[in-house]
Every structure is written in structure tokens, then in C-alpha cells.
């Protein structure tokens, strides 16, 4: 390591000062403030667990938590399965083509929130191009698909999970060595048995890690759902935003308690990811 004198040390730490102040003011203090507020009563006084009790006993907030978890789980599972299939297919392509697909995935990860919701409205909204097409073709059951419901929301979430999942899953396939496949083929295993007993189990920790990132990605999302149905669909993120900046009288304390619950679930998912990454690294993947 490069050597430094004591005075230089001080000068260098001075370099870090603006960043420290910035992080404290706009990252740490707001989080601390939110934590404090979540333990206050409605008037912003005292110490109480009332907000958390309310969050876990009222039907509407329980349903919001449940809906958020459900949408996050389903979209992540579907997303990761599709990404695994596509990720494997990508490894079979030529290098130039592979780079291009990854670039496209990378680009499409930006296609979320308001633009995505809008694009789906054009396709599948009440007067959407596909809705009209299905009507013309007499496919009534498809034409009746309502985008502004949970299924519609799931469709959007799956759409934006897939490119991210591909970007995260694709490198995992590099851990599967060609020699292993050869060895198992020589020993008479079919491709299916190779993946069933060697490939997938080897990849599992990394897959779970990716899965937790997708869960966090879906739980924290707000713009997509908001752009699609306003505050109508009952998700945790929608509830939180409505409580602090909506049309109703704001309740920062309850909003904070819900936000803390959301943050805790996300932290849990991130720790799972960290843990799985370490685990798979130890196994040499």
C-alpha cells in the first residue's frame, strides 16, 4: 500500500468530508427520522407501537402487505424461470450475438415505470391494439382481459423482471464447466440428468441470490403500479406514498411504520442474497 504521513492522512480524510455530510443529510438522517416517526402516535408525539399494531391488524394494510409479497413472489418466480431458459439459450449463441442480446436486456431494464405502463395500455388497455384485434378475431376470452387488475399488474412486473433476471442469471452459467458435461456424458448421463443432478444444484445458491434481488426489485417498485391504476391497487408502496403525499390527510407516522416494514422485508432479501453469494463462492462457483 502507498505510504502517507499523518498530515496527509488528515488532508485525505478532509476530502471525504463533503460526501459524509451529504450522506448524513440525505441518506442517514431521513432514514433515522422515518424510524423515529414510526414509533410515534398520530400527533407525532411520545413512543408507541400503535402504528405497527395498526399496520398488522387493519385489513387494508395486511392486504397491501400480502398483495405486495404475492406480486413480488409470482413475478420473480416467473421472471427467473424465463431468465434461466433464455440465459441458457444465450450461452449457446455466437459471441457477437450474445453481446448484442445482453445489451438489449440492459437497455430494456430502463423501460419501467410510467413508459412501460403506458406501452401496455396501448397494447392491452380498453381500446388497446391487441384488445381490438382479439375482438375482431372473436377471441372474447382474450379480449376481455382487464389490464387494470392484479393480473395486468403481474404482466407488467414480469416484463420488467425478465431483462434484469437475464443479466443476473447469465453469468451463473459460466460456472458450469464444459468438462463436467463431458464427464457426465461419458458416464452415460443424459442432458436432463446432468442438469437435474449437477447443473441446477450447483447453480442453486446463485439463483436464490438473484431471486432475492428480483423480490426486492418488485417490492420497492411504485411508479409502474401507480402509472397503471393510480392509487387504486392495494400495494404496500402505493399505500405508503398515499399516506404521505396523497389526497387524503397525511399520516407520516403510519406511513413510516409501513415503510419500515417494507424496508425490513427488503433488507432480509438482500441479506439472503449476500449469504447465498458467499455460500456459492465457497463452493468455487
Amino acid at each position: 500500500m502507498a505510504r502517507t504521513g499523518p498530515i496527509q492522512n488528515k488532508i485525505m480524510l478532509l476530502v471525504c468530508l463533503p460526501l459524509l455530510i451529504w450522506i448524513a443529510a440525505f441518506e442517514l438522517l431521513p432514514i433515522a427520522g422515518m424510524l423515529v416517526m414510526s414509533f410515534q402516535d398520530d400527533s407525532g408525539q411520545g413512543f408507541s407501537l400503535g402504528q405497527y399494531i395498526r399496520a398488522f391488524t387493519s385489513d387494508i394494510y395486511l392486504q397491501a402487505i400480502w398483495n405486495s409479497l404475492k406480486v413480488a413472489l409470482i413475478s420473480s418466480i416467473v421472471g427467473i424461470i424465463i431468465a434461466l431458459v433464455c440465459g441458457y439459450a444465450i450461452t449457446r449463441l455466437s459471441e457477437g450475438f450474445r453481446d448484442r442480446i445482453l445489451m438489449v436486456s440492459n437497455m430494456i431494464t430502463n423501460f419501467v415505470g410510467v413508459p412501460l405502463a403506458f406501452a401496455y395500455m396501448i397494447m392491452l388497455g380498453n381500446n388497446g391494439a391487441f384488445t381490438l384485434l382479439f375482438q375482431k378475431l372473436g377471441l372474447d376470452s382474450l379480449a376481455k382481459f382487464d389490464l387494470y387488475t392484479e393480473n395486468g399488474l403481474l404482466m407488467l412486473y414480469i416484463y420488467y423482471q425478465i431483462p434484469l433476471a437475464i443479466l443476473l442469471v447469465y453469468p451463473i452459467f459460466h460456472g458450469i464447466r464444459e468438462e463436467w458435461k463431458e464427464a457426465s456424458a461419458l458416464l452415460g448421463a443424459s442432458a436432463w440428468r446432468f442438469w437435474r443432478h449437477i447443473g441446477i444444484p450447483m447453480m442453486l445458491p446463485s439463483i436464490l441470490g438473484t431471486f432475492s434481488i428480483l423480490i426486492a426489485n418488485a417490492l420497492g417498485a411504485y411508479a409502474t403500479a401507480y402509472a397503471l391504476t393510480g392509487s387504486n391497487f392495494n400495494l404496500l408502496s402505493i399505500r405508503i406514498a398515499a399516506l404521505v403525499s396523497g389526497d387524503i390527510f397525511p399520516n407520516f407516522q403510519l406511513g413510516s411504520a409501513l415503510a419500515v416494514i417494507l424496508a425490513l422485508i427488503m433488507l432480509l432479501a438482500m441479506f439472503l442474497n449476500e449469504w447465498m453469494t458467499r455460500y456459492s463462492r465457497r463452493r468455487g462457483l
Partner: peptide
């Protein structure tokens, strides 16, 4: 850690404290 914090506290969560402060 500081760089990763925004991932654990998505905008909709971080905004509450910011509005209040």
C-alpha cells in the same frame, strides 16, 4: 454500504423522511 443503502430503501421509502425533514 452507503452505496448499497438506496437498494434497501427504495425511493418510496426514503421519500418519507426527506419530506418530513
Amino acid at each position: 454500504i452507503s452505496v448499497l443503502l438506496p437498494f434497501a430503501f427504495p425511493p418510496v421509502v426514503a421519500a418519507i423522511g426527506l419530506i418530513k425533514l
